[in-house]
Structures are given as structure tokens and as C-alpha cells.
Design a protein around this nucleic acid. Structure first.
Lengths: 360, 360
DNA sequence: TACTTGTCTGAATCCGAAG
DNA sequence: ACTTCGGATTCAGACAAGT
């Protein structure tokens, strides 16, 4: 069976999931029912009613019932995921511990738990607890062996050149982004901000990937996916939500072209063998290379290996050897001498070579 | 049997716990083994060795073994707790989901999960995941019926008259606070900051209460308890840790409430990454930014990087590149165009973002 | 004394493509 | 599935040493 993409499917989550083909999606994002147990409704100090989560879909008779349900939909997601796929699940303390333990039991391999810090959370009206100002997301690979997509460099640029932390400060979904029903009331009790989903998808998918959301709700995952040039598959039981999300999706213009590209890792650049610098004349056999502060030196041989006279090997091997280190990046360790006798890392020559050859 | 107070007892945690009387302590704070399952060695980019947790006490054969251990010590804690007592457990994604689920299964009633945001966490040296910048604490009453102590007003004063949130920014335990062995190395691999424990005890105990820590380690819980006029009972297996913690406790002078004011949480201006301006819609992918006098221009990509078409990078790196400067503050160098085609530095948007988010 | 520079370290599931 | 090997990879803060 072929997976139909860019649709929101109507029906029971586990039922629909069971009909999707094996190993067909790159990422699952799930915002399952929270199993909230709000005894008797919550009121503000002024006695007004807080519109909490009291929908039928959020009722479970026991932890066992919730665990069984969780086990079932996660197992189906696991089957549907590609082997190098990953899953995100968001939850609160009511359910996330159970979800996390079941994920681990099923063989998913947690990469990070990520904390969504709400910049504008609802106050705790009774003053009996801390203001519940965060939710927890779990990011896990299908297995320990999964090579999950992780756009480290893109997230680092996003975060002002510092690696992205596991805590994300993001505002609640409010204002114009929040979908309303005919009465102007919020259409869904737990609509997530699209910015949260955008960050998830930027971090752990590539353009053209397929993202499955088994609890699609108002279609936030699908919206973020469409906007970022990813394919989506949504499953949702409630026809009202489906109607709303389809209208929402229709209005979204995908980001296209060069601006959809993200910062690439250095590892993804084409490899330049050291010997290429010899062939193109940037360096010559017999030239001397120096470690920082000229502590060690070595000569270049015709095949692109270095030699100290007694020991020889690749720029990396020899760099590691002279430092007695387990490993070494020869490109940044070894320096050449320019006509003014200044030292510069040979990585500079590699960069120039790449520019000249259009390899960036 | 009478509970002996203000002692650190030597022995196996479950064994000692089993000999403590029923309903005798007001609070349990537990920092159990995390079951980290670390792989081989880890080195920093400068090749130095990272001292990971490789102690035997953190090794378990399987999740089942860990669950059994967790179940046992929690059940004993439950018995020893007074009916209106409460428990805190700290952990990371390696173990906290299992702990949380077992707590719920045993009838504990979660009040909050609290996130310890580390202001100075260790980086992810290999660029493979998000920087693991937090740990999770679970605060739970002995049962749904427990009337847990919660010093709402004290916490509010502590937090500049705003409700204390469920995320706490606190530095790691370093410097002079970190206990050292004879060689000057850290005495314990996972010593917690005393400020974390102080906040826990201020929030959920009263002076004169008794606090039990079944994994006492270097005695941080006991130290905070003594300082704040609470009684402590510690259990620890390792005699070296016990010796250290007894010396530590001897040196502690209990302090009075008024002095606590000086312990108020230090606030720092939260960093606003450039990407946040995209997420919140102040800028959009594809928008153009200009250098002063429009000499250069660049387009914004989805990840918050800029591109000239041939070269791309962060606002800072691309600013430096076009000016051929070694460094550049992209926030003041790059300008956006308002509807009247006037240029203003993007730093202005950052200031507005801070104001709107209440981050000043 | 004040400031700069360099070194060290912290609960970490920390590489990946090619052969 | 195994090994080999090229070469990429870090942030905040405490402290010491140098200027």
C-alpha cells in the first residue's frame, strides 16, 4: 500500500494507523490526550469558570487504560516509522512519565527531553502549587541504532551561534493564530503554537520528509510541515477539527526556494583530500608544515603524507602522533609558512580551494 | 521505634529505610542513580577527557532491574512518610520517566514537575543533540488526599512578588561549594547545588520539619535543612561521602528568615536569539536585511541564517564577512526596512520582542 | 589594584561514511 | 556486521597567572 501524503484522515487513531504501510514516514509528532484529572472543574478567584480540558477524548478510567492506549498507538507509530525515523511526543506531568517509560520499553531511544517554557502561562489561581509554566517533549529515535536527522548547524545559527539548549522559551498559541469556532470561543483546548512545531521540524526533518501526526487536532503539525516544505499525514477523529484544519492548511503558502535552505554542517561539504592542494599547486612536495608555535615540523611528501623523518602518515595521523593525542584534525593543526614567515592553518588553503572550485 | 534526627546513617538505602518507623518524616528528597548507560570515553574538542559518571552505583542490568530498585526504595519512603507528607525526586530523561510512572502507580499524587534549568550546563561536544541543559524534579504528595505544605507567599516574595514558576534557573554546583577530595578532584560526581535544595525546602517544609534523603551523597539536603532550621535524616552507603558530609554539616550555621532575603534568585536578562524574531513573526523568511546605507543586502532563511546568494551564515558571521572584519555585532549592523522604506537596526525588534514577552 | 588572558571543568546515553 | 579512518566538535564560570 502506498502512503497518501498531505491529507488529514478522519477516524480512530489506532484504527487508521494500523492501515498505514510499514517504514513509510520520517517523523512522528504526537500530542496525545493528557489524561487530565481535573476534579470537578476549576474556578478563578472571581468564581469564573476556567475552560479546562473536559472533552470525552481525554477521559481514561485508570492508569492501566491510559497505558494500554499509549502502548497501542506508539507500537503502530513504531511500525510506520522508517528505521532511521524519530518520534516526538509532548505532554505534561499528568501523562509524560508514562509515555516516556513506554517509549523506552518499546525500544525507542531517547535523544533529548525538551522543555517548552511558556512565556505567558496561565497563573495558578489557587496558590497551592507552582505556576505550571512548561510542558515536556520527548525526542526519541526508533531504536538505539537509528541515525536520526538533526540539523545541528541550522539550530545553532537560529540561536545566535550558540548550540540550541534543551529548554525553549516560546509563547502560548494566542491571538490571531488561535483557531476560533462560530461563537468566537477557542476551537480546541490545547492548540499548540506553530512556532513550536516549526522548531521541531527544522531541527529533525529535511525538506521533502513526511511527518505523521496521529492526534492532528487543529492541524498545527500539518501547517508547520506545509509551510516548511515537508509532507504531512494527519489523523483526527473529530470532524469539526478536520474542517477547521483543512481551511487552515488551504491558506498556508509554503516557503520555497533558497530561503528554505538551512545552514549545512561541515561534514556535508565535499571532501578535499590533502593531496589536492599539492596537485593544484597550493603546496609543494618538500614544503614544511608547522604545529602551532612551531613546536613540531614535518615535510610534505609527494603522495600527500607528512613525515618527521622517522615517522610519517596522514596530516591527521601525524598530528595525533606528535601530540600523543588519540585524534587530531590535521587541517587546523598543521600550518604553512607564507612569504612573510607567518603561519596560517592549511585549512585556509582548503577553504580557498573550495571557493575556487565552487565546492561550497 | 523513635526516629533519630540530624544524623547521616551508613548502609544500604533500602535496608536502612526498612528499619525507620512508619509515618515519621515530613518530606523525602531523593537523588537516586540515573542509570545513565554511558558509552565509551568522551573528549572535548581540545582533546581533553570528560569525567563522566562511571561509578558502580549507577549501573543496572536492565530497565527492569532499575524499575525494581526504584519500586522498592519508593515503597519504603512511602511507608516512612507522614500522611500529609510529600516527596521530591530529581532525575534526567534516562530515569525520570520511569520514576514518575512508578510514583503514580504507587498512589503518590504529583503536584508539579519542576525543571532545574542549568545556567552553565556542559555543552554537547560532538554536535549530536540539543545541549542537555536541565534536569527534572517531581514533587508529589503521599496521596491525592495529602495536604502538602506549600509556602506560597514565601516563594512569591522570593520571586519578586510574582508566582514562582515551575522552571528554576540555578547554576551548577561549582567552585568553592563543590566538595573536593585529597587530590583536589571533585569528591562526588553529581553534587547538587545547595540553592536548589534551599528552594525545595523553603517551598515545601516548615521550620522544625524532618527531611529524609535516602541517597545523601555529600549531604547537600542535610546541609540545606540545617541551614534552614529543618531536621534531617540522611542515608548513604559510601563512608567517604559520609565523612565529608559530616565535616560539611559541622561548619554550617543555621540562618534566620530575614537573612534569606539575601538569597533571592538572581535574575539575568534572557537571551533572545535571532531565530525567535522569525518564530514570532517580527521578521519572515525571505525578508531582506541591509547594512547601513544599503551597501550590502542579504535575505533571511528559515533557520535565521542570512544569505547573499553565494555566502551564508549567522547575522554576525555574514556581517563580518561582507565588511571583511574579524567580527561583527549583527544586531546593530543589519537593518530591516519598515513600510515607509526607512531602515532600522534589527536590535530594535529584539527590544520590542523583550518588552512584549515581559522579559525585561 | 584593575584588567586581560589562559586553563580547567561540569549527571553525557556525544561521528559517520566508506570499505 | 565488522573495521578503518578522515576530520568535526564546546558554553559558562571559576580561578590563576600575567600585565
Amino acid at each position: 500500500m502506498e502512503l497518501q501524503k498531505n491529507v488529514i484522515m478522519q477516524g480512530d487513531c489506532i484504527d487508521i494507523l494500523s492501515r498505514l504501510p510499514d517504514r513509510s514516514v520520517d517523523l512522528v509528532f504526537a500530542d496525545p490526550p493528557y489524561n487530565l484529572q481535573l476534579g470537578g472543574g476549576l474556578t478563578r478567584p472571581d468564581q469564573s469558570h476556567v475552560a479546562g480540558v473536559d472533552d470525552d477524548w481525554d477521559k481514561f478510567d485508570s492508569f492501566d487504560a491510559y497505558d494500554l492506549f499509549t502502548h497501542q498507538w506508539l507500537e503502530e507509530c513504531r511500525r510506520v516509522l522508517k528505521d532511521d525515523g524519530a518520534i516526538w511526543v509532548i505532554g505534561s506531568y499528568h501523562n509524560i512519565f508514562r509515555v516516556g517509560a513506554i517509549l523506552q520499553d518499546q525500544g525507542f531511544w531517547i535523544q533529548n527531553d525538551v522543555i517548552w517554557l511558556k512565556s505567558n502561562p496561565m497563573p495558578n489561581f489557587k496558590g497551592t502549587r507552582f505556576q505550571n509554566a512548561h510542558e515536556t517533549l520527548i525526542w526519541a529515535g526508533k531504536s538505539e541504532a537509528s541515525k536520526c536527522t538533526f540539523n545541528y548547524d541550522a539550530l545553532k545559527v537560529f540561536n545566535d551561534d550558540k548550540q540550541m539548549r534543551s529548554d525553549w522559551m516560546i509563547p502560548l498559541c494566542t491571538g490571531g493564530e488561535r483557531l476560533k469556532d462560530e461563537d468566537g470561543k477557542k476551537a480546541h483546548p490545547t492548540q499548540k503554537p506553530e512556532s513550536l512545531l516549526q522548531r521541531v521540524l527544522l531541527a529533525t526533518t529535511n525538506p521533502g520528509d513526511t511527518v505523521l501526526d496521529p492526534f492532528s487536532g487543529t492541524g498545527t503539525t500539518a501547517a508547520a510541515a506545509k509551510r516548511l516544505g515537508r509532507n504531512y499525514v494527519g489523523i483526527e477523529r473529530d470532524e469539526t477539527y478536520i474542517r477547521l484544519s483543512r481551511a487552515r492548511l488551504k491558506a498556508i503558502e509554503p516557503i520555497e526556494g533558497a530561503v528554505l535552505e538551512t545552514e549545512k554542517s561541515k561534514k556535508s561539504l565535499p571532501r578535499v583530500p590533502f593531496g589536492a592542494l599539492l596537485e593544484s599547486g597550493w603546496l609543494k612536495p618538500g614544503d614544511r608544515l608547522f604545529s602551532p608555535q612551531r613546536r613540531y615540523q614535518a615535510r610534505i611528501r609527494v603522495d600527500g603524507s607528512l613525515t618527521t623523518g622517522t615517522i610519517s602518515g596522514s596530516i591527521h595521523r601525524l598530528g595525533a602522533h606528535v601530540q600523543q593525542a588519540p585524534a587530531c584534525n590535521g587541517w587546523t593543526y598543521w600550518h604553512y609558512e607564507d612569504p612573510k614567515r607567518n603561519l596560517a592553518p592549511i585549512d585556509l588553503l582548503r577553504r580557498r580551494y573550495r571557493e575556487e572550485m565552487g565546492l561550497n
